[in-house]
Simulated assay, not measured.
Amino acid sequence: MTEIGLIDSVIESAGPVALIGGGDVPGAVAERVLGMAGAVVGADGGAEWLLRRGRMPDAVIGDMDSLTPRWSRRLPPERLHRVTEQDSTDFEKCLTRIEAPLVLGVGFLGAQVDHMLAAFSVLARFPDRPCLLAGSNDVVFHAPPRLRLTLGRGARFSLYPMRQVSGHSVGLEWPIDGVTFAPDARVGTSNRVRGPVELSFDGPGMLVILPVAALADVVAALLGSDARWPALAG
């Protein structure tokens, strides 16, 4: 197994990369994500889900405390990338080592609220690494500087700030103009779509939460726009 430093890339791709985590992996959603991506990465124990379904991951990244020897033996050693430090989650270890226009993660939203909150924190800390997380019911992603989406009228459209942030909206039942959002103050959950949506923000820090039915539309929108924010200092 290879020791990888924080600045080293394990996977570089010109197209979307699928990332399978070790949490709840809804099969139908995961298969859709795999169909949208080229390269596939297992986050530690997420490799088992792939191997059980006959899919060899291009890389497995993590501290390897969840991937049992039974399954790790089935992987070529050069595809195993152990990161031993314990200051970051397996999701962060993977996201910071994948260079791609978009990472599509499955297995990071689910029953364990603490794991899900940790994943949201990673999305907020690395706005320069576009990533969409998909679960059984929702998709979650860090809002790019500008976003355009066409969704069904009445669709649920939630915004959750991870730091203080303001923005502009078109096409929402309750516009966000003039609102200062913050995680300990105003949030924007359970808004609704009235028409084609346009959003812009004055800085990074806003997560968008939509029904999983919007998965393909969101992927197309993120790939069709500049989804990267400048890396945050520190």
Results as ranks from 00 to 15, higher is better:
Thr96Pro: 05
Ala59Phe: 03
Arg186Phe: 07
Arg73His: 13
Val165Glu: 08
Leu67His: 00
Val103Ser: 15
Leu102Gln: 02
Asp226His: 10
Pro16Ser: 09
Phe120Lys: 12
Ser158Val: 04
Arg74Asn: 10
Thr68Glu: 07
Leu104Arg: 07
Tyr160Asp: 01
Val122Tyr: 02
Ala30Thr: 03
Leu6Asn: 12
Arg97Phe: 03
His81Tyr: 07
Arg146Thr: 12
Ala111Ile: 09
Val122Glu: 01
Ala39Gln: 12
His142Leu: 02
Gly15Thr: 12
Arg153Asn: 10
Gly203His: 01
Thr2Ile: 10
Pro127Phe: 07
Leu67Val: 00
Ser190Trp: 04
Arg192Tyr: 14
Asn191Met: 01
Asp202Ile: 01
His168Asp: 14
Gly15Ile: 15
Ser88Phe: 11
Leu149Asp: 14
Val10Trp: 01
Phe181Lys: 05
Ser136Thr: 12
Thr150His: 10
Thr2Arg: 14
Val103Tyr: 14
Arg129Asn: 00
Ala134Val: 06
Gly152Asp: 15
Glu48Tyr: 03
Met162Lys: 02
Ala18Tyr: 07
Asp114Thr: 15
Met116Gly: 15
Ile20Lys: 06
Gly105Arg: 09
Val179Trp: 14
Asp114Ser: 13
Gly171Glu: 06
Gly224Trp: 07
Arg74Tyr: 11
Leu95His: 01
Asp87Leu: 06
Thr180Leu: 13
Val41Tyr: 03
Leu172Phe: 04
Glu92Asn: 03
Arg82Ile: 11
Ala18Asp: 06
Ala47Gln: 03
Ala111Asn: 13
Gly42Asn: 05
Gly205Ala: 00
Pro204Glu: 03
Ser66Glu: 01
Asp114Pro: 15
Val10Thr: 01
Ile4Trp: 10
Asp138Tyr: 10
Arg79Ala: 04
Val193Lys: 10
Glu78Arg: 13
Leu147Ile: 12
Arg156Gly: 15
Gly105Val: 15
Ala37Ile: 07
Val10Ile: 05
Glu3Pro: 11
Gly38Arg: 07
Thr68Lys: 06
Asp217Arg: 11
Ala14Lys: 12
Met206Arg: 02
Val208Glu: 06
Gly195Asn: 07
Met64Asn: 04
Pro16Trp: 09
Arg73Ala: 12
Ala59Lys: 01
Ala59Pro: 02
Phe120Trp: 14
Trp174Val: 14
Ala118His: 08
Arg148Phe: 10
Ala233Thr: 08
Val10His: 01
Gly54Glu: 05
Leu50Val: 06
Gly21Glu: 13
Ala100Gln: 01
Ile11Asn: 00
Gly5Val: 15
Glu3Leu: 11
Val219Lys: 08
Ala124Pro: 03
Gly23Ala: 09
Ala155Asp: 11
Arg129Asp: 02
Thr189Ala: 04
Leu215Met: 13
Asp138Phe: 10
Gly154Glu: 08
Pro161Ala: 02
Pro161Glu: 01
Gly205Arg: 00
Asn137Leu: 08
Val218Thr: 10
Ser13Thr: 08
Asp90Phe: 00
Gln86Val: 06
Thr68Cys: 06
Leu133Thr: 07
Met56Asn: 08
Leu34Gln: 05
Ala14Phe: 09
Val219Trp: 08
Gly107Lys: 00
Asp217Ala: 14
Gly42Lys: 03
Leu151Ser: 04
Ala155His: 12
Gly205Gln: 00
